[in-house]
Design a binder for these strands. Structure first.
Lengths: 377, 377
DNA sequence: ATTATTACCTGAATCGATTCAGATGATAGC
DNA sequence: GCTATCATCTGAATCGATTCAGGTAATAAT
């Protein structure tokens, strides 16, 4: 790594404002404003002069903040995540969702503000000696798209107090907002049924976080029942219902491992733990492809064959899962579409539509190479 | 897909302001402000009353825009891309870069505003009947991180006119700003040398965009020379120098295909075209893994073996490349680190550091399965 | 008992624009 | 020649807070 340093230009001290331009030219401030915002309100001549003087004086154009204050509009949409952005964007599917939102809102002139949950470490603790409000309450936006799991999440609450238009994403059970979600339960059932049809009867479930205060490890029935993250809860139920519907008993046939992070590394830990159970699961149901891919890596490293010894079914169909070896069987969900719908719904609200809409997108099982019949013997 | 609609709550009409709270309580506005911003400036008793009255009246806390105007600070960093966000986030490495930035700036209380280039289609043309300034000029931020290729890009120019602190990323040749880049030329040389060492003498180069107005197709020497996107230009030079250094002639040994988008689909087109050249290239040098992966897919579909018949070397080492089959040989660049350095450099400027720093991060050749000796025959 | 602190609170100025109801003069209509 | 219309431009109000130099009254110091 190479680093070079040099001197910088001196920074402009006193800022040039619209008023300065007006004074210099002997015209009213409103005229200068019009030169920028309503060219038809003044003679082309004068406008030319205004623009020219502005340049001469180093006026950089109307200050966006002042304009927003006066107009009452920011042309910005807040995309809120419960976790720090540095974690959120660890997951490749975050980008797809952003892409979808952008597809809808960008051409309407909106920009996207990323708002992450609190970073909790000593550095931020030190920062919090200053009186800080949750960033969600201090952010300048016209509306929010909230990607949130738990109803009691502080970030969510802070966001709600803003009284701005909101669209909730992947959040089940709160009918007070417009929302976009997927068929989580159906998706989980599809995954489980797939391996059930292949004769599997022992399952290892790799679960996403169940509550905000989470740690890696096997989850007891009680812990499972205490799940507050709605997506996790519903997928878990999907797995369970499918398994029970097949005449099996959940407690006897499925071990559930709760992960603290949605990362391949956690998937590896989970797999290691689940493979140590007796009887050993022959099928792994993972709530995300990130986890599934980690599990896959670990299992192969143990010298076991996938799907010969163990079948794996993921969830999300993230880009890359198709390239795994073997390619990952997974439950596809339309990430980009989710973003598009969220954007569309928020846009409608911003344009005054007060009706409340809820969109549920379909999931689809994609059978690839990581799943197969239960091993004989 | 399921859609439900229902009635929404009525929206609050006249907004409750700090002044309303002050009036209701018979105190000065400054006191209410202090209740929120400097609790030590008033008695706990009164503060309690203020907060309570605020809640009673439905006051949502200090308006962020007004606060920003007064304070002269937004606590927001603009991340500027030359292309629309909907395209930018098509590339998985965009997320990694965001992650890196967030890692640095998030805990300092900054949020990230995504600013994309102009969407140019009929819809936005229709929008432009309104007098709109480039969004980069209307966005409320304290500073910019600009990810930009061409020096003459209008988005870049608009950004510069703001007179705010800036860090340029992946932009070579402009020493007037702090910047973060990678060893692009070295990386390209590493890629080319790798296949040269394996005896290859016929190359197909799959290039990224060379200019803003670009279209897919073979690029003549003139077109290559006219490249304005600096990253493309430098990588191209790297390939070329390595090849000439090996005693080969660029024109005779390398066909260059320029792609319009950095997508696998374009990579496939490029591969199709390059394979049709005579003599047929035995090694493909792609300027991104997205392109390389597309090429790989196409070549395998043609019944050719990689690396048996054709070697492929990518660039970027994006997540997923390792899972390709065969795993992709590529030039690794530290995406997250790039973000971190950009964030750090901007933060320094925001804190008053006026020195100008330029960081160049190393690249590294990662040899995996997609490259091998030149086919005998 | 007098002065110095301290704790708590207020008023007015300010941040940088936008907006809209007019004022002014010039042109057009009859 | 007189009114109506039009094209330009201006002034003042406003958006919603923050800040800082004081002002009081109560407490502490001498």
């Amino acid at each position: 790594m190479t680093v070079k340093r040099g001197a910088n230009k001196t920074k402009a001290k006193g800022r040039v404002t619209l008023k300065d331009v007006a004074r210099e030219l002997g015209v009213a401030a409103s005229t200068v404003s019009n030169a920028y915002n309503r060219p038809d309100q003044l003679s082309p001549d004068l406008r030319e002069k205004v623009l020219h003087t502005a340049e001469k004086l180093g006026y950089l154009g109307p200050d966006p903040t002042a304009r927003s204050l006066r107009r009452g509009v920011t042309n910005t949409i807040g995309l809120v995540y419960p976790s720090p952005l540095s974690y959120t964007f660890t997951d490749p599917i975050a980008g797809l969702f952003v892409q979808g939102i952008a597809l809808e809102v960008e051409r309407q002139g909106y920009t996207l503000l990323l708002v992450g949950g609190e970073v909790d470490d000593d550095v931020s603790a030190q920062r919090s000696t200053k009186p800080t409000l949750a960033t969600a309450t201090t952010v300048q936006v016209d509306g929010f798209i909230v990607h949130c799991f738990a109803s009691d999440d502080p970030v969510l609450e802070a966001t709600l107090t803003r009284g701005l238009p909101i669209v909730m994403v992947d959040h089940h059970g709160n009918e007070a907002f417009s929302s976009v979600k997927i068929e989580d339960e159906l998706g989980a059932k599809q995954a489980a049924n797939h391996v059930l049809e292949h004769g599997h009867t022992q399952f290892g479930v790799i679960s996403l976080e169940m509550t905000p205060k989470t740690r890696s490890g096997l989850a007891t029935l009680d812990q499972q029942a205490a799940t507050t993250y709605t997506t996790t809860k519903i997928r878990l139920e999907g797995y369970r219902r499918a398994i029970e519907r097949a005449g099996l008993t959940w407690e006897a046939c499925a071990s559930v491992y709760e992960t603290a992070d949605n990362t391949p590394a956690e998937g590896e830990l989970a797999a290691a733990c689940l493979l140590a159970q007796t009887p050993r699961p022959t099928a792994i149901l993972a709530m995300s492809d990130q986890l599934a891919l980690g599990a896959l890596a670990h299992i192969k490293r143990q010298g076991l064959d996938v799907p010969g010894d163990v079948s794996i079914v993921g969830f999300d169909d993230m880009p890359g899962s198709i390239h795994a070896s073997p390619p990952l069987t997974t439950v596809h969900q339309p990430h980009v579409d989710k973003g598009k719908h969220a954007g569309k719904l928020l846009l409608a609200q911003l344009q005054g539509d007060t009706s409340l809409a809820s969109v549920t997108l379909p999931t689809k099982l994609i059978v690839r190479g990581s799943s197969g019949p239960v091993p004989q013997k």
